[in-house]
Amino acid sequence: MVAAARIARTLRTVLGWFALAIGLFALAGWIGSSIPRNRGWHEPSAQDTSAVTIFVETNGVHTALVLPKYTPQKDWSETFPLSDLDNPARPYTHVSVSWGEREVFLNTPTWADLSPLALLHIAGVGGTGLLHVAHYVRPAPGDDIRPLRVSTRQYAAIVRRIEQALPPEPVGEARRHYSGYGDYDAFYDARGSYTAANTCNQWTSNTLAAAGVKTGVWTPFAGGVMKWVPAG
């Protein structure tokens, strides 16, 4: 009985410290996401017809950048060809690009498939990066996919940042890709390591910040990214 009581106390202590660590991480994420980068940035005016409309998308946990498929700055079909999709025939107009942890992306088609042990491993040890690219047809603005206007220079910077996330394409070979969750998406090898400090949402905000767009300093959670993008 004494041994059982000692084990129970130890378990409560461990769980208490674990809960405290999670709470402190969440608090740090809220604080970090509330400190702006590019404080003076504003969207181009409605009269600026050269501005590019992108979207910032979320499912509540993960964020992505939704970009027009064809602009003078970039033809995304050259980097992410329709031949990589199971259904290339739709009239796609946009690509949704996000970065995340390889094993999570490839082996957890739904959040229910993500085990607590796998989540702890990724948070503690990290993992290899991977890009997820989904192709959309005329996405409609909403609370979970919010439009954001950027200048042509800023959009070109976003394009460069995404291109830099990809490893060099093999000479004379197609870029390696992996099947997605449906017939309209695919995964691609990417640079970078996923950690608790460098999450998928941090990648989204870093990409925006590199273009001069106002966003939070540290945004490990989706809400920390979306708070800077007004709902339409």
Rank of each mutant, 00 (worst) to 15 (best):
A123D: 00
A157E: 12
V61L: 05
R39Y: 11
V56E: 03
V66H: 01
R160A: 14
I122V: 14
E103Q: 13
E103W: 11
A156S: 14
A89M: 11
V66W: 06
N107Q: 13
S98P: 11
P68D: 10
V159Q: 03
R138T: 08
N87Q: 10
D86Q: 13
G32L: 08
L148V: 15
S83Y: 07
A123Y: 00
R153D: 15
T58R: 07
G32V: 09
E103T: 10
S33H: 04
P91G: 05
S50P: 07
Y136F: 11
L148C: 10
R161F: 15
T58F: 03
R37L: 15
A134Y: 09
Q73N: 10
H42L: 15
H62S: 00
A134K: 08
P147M: 10
Y70T: 12
T58I: 02
L117D: 15
F80E: 03
T79V: 14
N87C: 06
R138D: 12
T152W: 09
T49A: 11
G142K: 04
F80Q: 01
A156H: 02
S33G: 09
A64P: 08
G142V: 04
W99F: 04
L82R: 09
I145R: 09
L120M: 09
T110Q: 14
T49L: 10
L120C: 07
E57P: 05
T79Q: 14
P68T: 00
N87V: 11
G60A: 01
T49H: 10
S33T: 01
T128I: 09
